[in-house]
């Protein structure tokens, strides 16, 4: 494991914890897309089914369990515990427009036509676009709380660091996973507009507006 992979994982973990703590501390999930969080729970569930079939390392297993646990805890907070604060009227992205094409693509373009591998591929494709309901919600309301922008920053940074990790692994290990790389590039590109706003307008302000 190289430093980019590790900091990528930690950045991902930071994003997940930041969101969970924000909701817990403020006892509100205003401005958070429950749909994106359901998609992330679906991503982790379909990807980490290999917890049941193969053991890679204690680190790997621990992180997977934490990611899955936090994803479902977040969904629980949004749709059950703090349901009254959930801004469903602005969370109107049609997720079937993501899940259905992504599911079809996973069937067509994969490394191996086996159930677990198709589910893994589905999770990789779905993760690349799972943030769209959240970005759509922010563009609809025209603003995001600072802590939400920190969440998005770390979530975007994680896949960008993975891209460097893949370049590293290609040169030093000959490792090359086309599906992960292409999806990772798409995922990172989706955050670019946000990164720009975060860096140029985010500092010193309490709220970030994304122009529609």
């Amino acid at each position: 494991m190289n430093i980019f992979r590790l900091t990528g994982d930690l950045s991902h973990l930071a994003a997940i914890i930041i969101l969970l703590l924000k909701i817990w501390k403020t006892r509100s999930c205003a401005g958070i897309s429950g749909k994106s969080q359901i998609l992330f729970a679906l991503v982790f569930t379909s990807r980490y089914l290999d917890l049941l079939t193969s053991f890679i390392s204690l680190y790997n297993t621990t992180m997977k369990v934490i990611y899955i646990g936090c994803a479902y805890a977040t969904v629980y907070l949004i749709y059950a515990k703090f349901k009254a604060t959930y801004d469903g009227n602005h969370d109107t992205f049609r997720v079937e427009f993501l899940v259905v094409p992504v599911g079809g693509l996973a069937f067509l373009v994969n490394h191996d036509f086996s159930p677990l591998e198709i589910l893994w591929t589905f999770s990789i494709y779905l993760e690349s676009v799972a943030i769209l309901p959240q970005l759509f919600m922010i563009s609809k309301t025209g603003e995001a709380e600072t802590i939400t922008t920190h969440y998005l920053f770390f979530l975007g940074l994680y896949r960008a660091l993975y891209l460097i990790n893949w370049i590293w692994r290609f040169y030093f290990e000959g490792f090359f996973d086309m599906i992960a790389i292409v999806a990772g590039v798409v995922q990172t590109i989706l955050y670019c507009d946000f990164f720009y706003l975060y860096v140029t307008k985010g500092e010193g302000r309490s709220q970030l507006s994304i122009p529609t």
Partner: peptide, 10 residues
């Protein structure tokens, strides 16, 4: 034939 290609990343 393995159940799944091993994926060592998260």
């Amino acid at each position: 034939h393995a159940l799944q290609i091993p994926h060592d990343e998260l």
